[in-house]
């Protein structure tokens, strides 16, 4: 049996005297499509940083893909929060994706013919081949997200992490990002973890939820979490989980 994608066992994180959260015990199974939710400032990004091996927990044990988290694990892809690519950044889309392939290696040069083919395949997979020579800063928010997904697709992707991918995105772009994640999920069998404060875009595709409530990250099944009560507690304001006639859900 393969190890779960992510396992936290009684993990706590403190910065100085401040406890971000504690008693984090949850599992994200392999092949899950998981939403990681919680109010702003509840430490969602901290969870992500621990999974990426950028931060060590103060207490507890963490396993990612069956091993302690470490930087540079190429089976993990990250779609960072928006705004990391500056508007006037003079580097082409294909260069950014290429860096995902060779950017960690010392030296210079842009990769051989085989590398270039791999980059073009990845750009094609996210529908950005026509934009390969555009400066990344001129791409829209949704296109930039897809560019990072292309970067993640270069290697054998097992775990894709998306950090607030829907911030400042219109509905059409939301749909496209979700559709792309679903195809990565289906075709590569990758585990998808979406950190978001807005559940609606992924409400009908997720099969697992990790949520931070009262300073404690925990997991839940869809039926448990996506109720009017739990969500209202989670957001600290009354919200309603509604089911439309076709069976799809939304929250307002």
């Amino acid at each position: 049996m393969t190890a779960p994608a992510v396992r936290f066992a009684d993990v706590a994180v403190t910065f100085g005297r401040r406890t971000i959260w504690r008693e984090a015990t949850f599992t994200i199974p392999r092949g899950a499509f998981c939403a990681l939710i919680g109010p702003s400032g509840s430490g969602k990004t901290t969870l992500l940083r621990i999974i990426l091996g950028e931060l060590r927990p103060s207490v507890g044990r963490v396993e990612v893909l069956g091993a302690p988290p470490r930087r540079g694990n190429r089976a993990i892809g990250l779609v960072p929060q928006r705004g990391v690519l500056l508007d006037d950044l003079a580097i082409r889309a294909r260069d950014l994706v290429m860096l995902g392939l060779n950017g960690h290696r010392w030296g210079f040069g842009g990769g051989n013919a085989d590398d270039r083919r791999r980059v073009e395949r990845a750009l094609d997979a996210v529908g950005l081949l026509d934009y390969a020579d555009e400066p990344v800063g001129t791409l829209s928010g949704g296109q930039q997200q897809r560019l990072f997904i292309a970067q993640a697709l270069l290697d054998r992707l097992e775990l894709l992490l998306l950090d607030e991918p829907f911030a400042n995105l219109d509905v059409k772009n939301e749909h496209e990002i979700v559709a792309l994640c679903r195809s990565v999920h289906r075709e590569q069998g990758a585990t998808i973890v979406v950190v978001t404060h807005d559940l609606n875009p992924v409400l009908n595709v997720i099969d697992h939820v990790v949520y931070v409530l009262d300073g404690r990250p925990r997991e839940g099944s869809i039926d448990e979490v996506l109720t009017t009560e739990t969500l209202s507690r989670l957001y600290g304001t009354p919200v309603q989980a509604l089911r439309a006639a076709d069976g799809s859900m939304f929250i307002r």
Partner: peptide, 23 residues
């Protein structure tokens, strides 16, 4: 500069992803 060119470019353009990729 020639020796650190690629990691430096990666870290300049996208420090968050560069870090996760081991730069």
């Amino acid at each position: 500069l020639g020796a650190i060119y690629r990691p430096l470019l990666f870290a300049s353009v996208d420090p968050a992803v560069a870090a996760t990729r081991g730069v």
